[in-house]
C-alpha cells in the first residue's frame, strides 16, 4: 500500500506544471463562476481559443529553434485587413484568402531571411517587421475599420454535424502540425536547429533553408488565420490582433516549451492554449476586465516558469 502511494506521488510529480494549472483552474472557476463547466461554455472556450491555437502551434516550432516571433499579432492584423479589403472590393473568398496567405507568407519569408540568412537575433528581427506590418495595416485602412462583409464570410460560423466549423479547423491544424513536427524530416530538423544548427549544417543539411522555413511556415499559418479573425470580428480593423502574439507566447511557455534549450512538446502547447483560454473565459465569466486578464496571463507564465524551474532543481 505504502509503495503504491509512493508510486502515485512520483507519477504526479512527473506531470508538467500546466496539468496542475488546468486542474486548479477547473476547480476555481467551476466553483466561482456559475455555468463555467457546462458543455456550452466548454465549447465556447474551444471556439474562442482557436485563433490562439493557430498562432501558438507555429510559435512552438519557432521557439523550439530558440527563436521568437513577436510580429505575429501585427502580421495577423495586416492579413485580416488585406482579406477584408479584398472582400469589400468585390473579390471572392478564395481570392481574399489567397491574398491574406500571400501577405503572411511574405512576412514569413522576411523574418526567415533576417533570422536565418542574416543571423539577426529573432526578437529584434520580428520587432522590426512588427513595426512594418503595423504601418502597412494603418496605411491600408487609414486607421479606419473595414466593414460590410458579413454575408460572404457567414459560412465560417456554421456547424458541421453539430460541431462548430472553427473547432474542426483547430483539430485539423493541431494534427497537421503534430504530424509535421514528429513524423517528417522538417520536424526532426526543427529540433536539431534548436539543439545545434552548426552540427546539422556539418551533416550536410541545408540548415539555413530549413531554419528560414520555420518562419515561412509560421507566416503562412498566420495568413490563413486571417480568415478566422475576419470571420469572428466581421470586419478588418488596424489593431484587431494587437498583442495576440503575447497570448501565443504565453501558451507555449505555460505548455512547458523552453525558450533557451530547444526543448518542448506540441501537446504541451495545446494544454497551454487551453490554460490561457480557460483563464480568459473564466475571468470573463467572473466579470474581470480584459486589461486585468492580460496581467493574470503574465502571472500565469511566471507561475509556470517557476514550477518548471523548481522541478529542474529538485
Amino acid at each position: 500500500m505504502h509503495h503504491r502511494v509512493h508510486e502515485l506521488a512520483r507519477r504526479l510529480a512527473a506531470l508538467p506544471g500546466v496539468a496542475y494549472i488546468l486542474v486548479l483552474q477547473a476547480i476555481v472557476f467551476g466553483s466561482v463562476a456559475q455555468g463555467f463547466l457546462s458543455p456550452l461554455n466548454l465549447t465556447n472556450i474551444g471556439t474562442q481559443a482557436t485563433i490562439l491555437l493557430m498562432l501558438a502551434l507555429p510559435m512552438t516550432l519557432v521557439i523550439l529553434t530558440e527563436g521568437l516571433d513577436i510580429s505575429m499579432g501585427a502580421v495577423l492584423t495586416l492579413c485580416s485587413v488585406v482579406l477584408a479589403w479584398v472582400l469589400v472590393h468585390g473579390g471572392g473568398i478564395g481570392l481574399a484568402l489567397a491574398a491574406s496567405a500571400a501577405m503572411g507568407l511574405a512576412f514569413g519569408v522576411a523574418n526567415g531571411t533576417l533570422v536565418s540568412y542574416l543571423g539577426m537575433p529573432p526578437f529584434v528581427a520580428t520587432l522590426g517587421t512588427l513595426g512594418m506590418a503595423q504601418g502597412l495595416a494603418l496605411a491600408i485602412t487609414d486607421g479606419q475599420s473595414i466593414v460590410g462583409i458579413s454575408a460572404q464570410i457567414a459560412f465560417m460560423r456554421a456547424d458541421v454535424l453539430g460541431i462548430p466549423l472553427v473547432l474542426i479547423i483547430a483539430f485539423v491544424a493541431y494534427f497537421f502540425v503534430h504530424a509535421l513536427l514528429y513524423y517528417t524530416r522538417f520536424g526532426t530538423y526543427v529540433f536539431a536547429i534548436g539543439g545545434n544548427r552548426e552540427a546539422l549544417a556539418l551533416a550536410g543539411v541545408h540548415a539555413r533553408a530549413w531554419h528560414a522555413g520555420v518562419y515561412v511556415f509560421a507566416g503562412l499559418m498566420v495568413g490563413i488565420t486571417g480568415l478566422l479573425l475576419v470571420a469572428r470580428t466581421n470586419s478588418g480593423h488596424p489593431t484587431a490582433a494587437f498583442g495576440m502574439e503575447f497570448d501565443a507566447i504565453a501558451a507555449v511557455a505555460v505548455g512547458g516549451t523552453s525558450f533557451e534549450r530547444g526543448e518542448g512538446w506540441l501537446f504541451g502547447t495545446l494544454l497551454g492554449v487551453l490554460a490561457v483560454g480557460v483563464m480568459r473565459n473564466g475571468l470573463n465569466v467572473a466579470g474581470v476586465s480584459s486589461s486585468l486578464q492580460v496581467v493574470a496571463i503574465g502571472l500565469l507564465v511566471i507561475a509556470a516558469l517557476l514550477i518548471d524551474a523548481l522541478r529542474r532543481r529538485a
Binding site: 503575447f246 507566447i249 486589461s291 486585468l292
Partner: peptide, 23 residues
C-alpha cells in the same frame, strides 16, 4: 533571480503594465 531571458521578461512586463494602465 528567475533567470528569464531579458526579451521574454521585459516583453511580459510590457503587457502586464499595459493591462494595469488600462485598468
Amino acid at each position: 533571480a528567475l533567470r528569464i531571458p531579458p526579451f521574454i521578461a521585459t516583453y511580459g512586463m510590457l503587457w502586464v503594465l499595459h493591462g494595469l494602465s488600462y485598468y
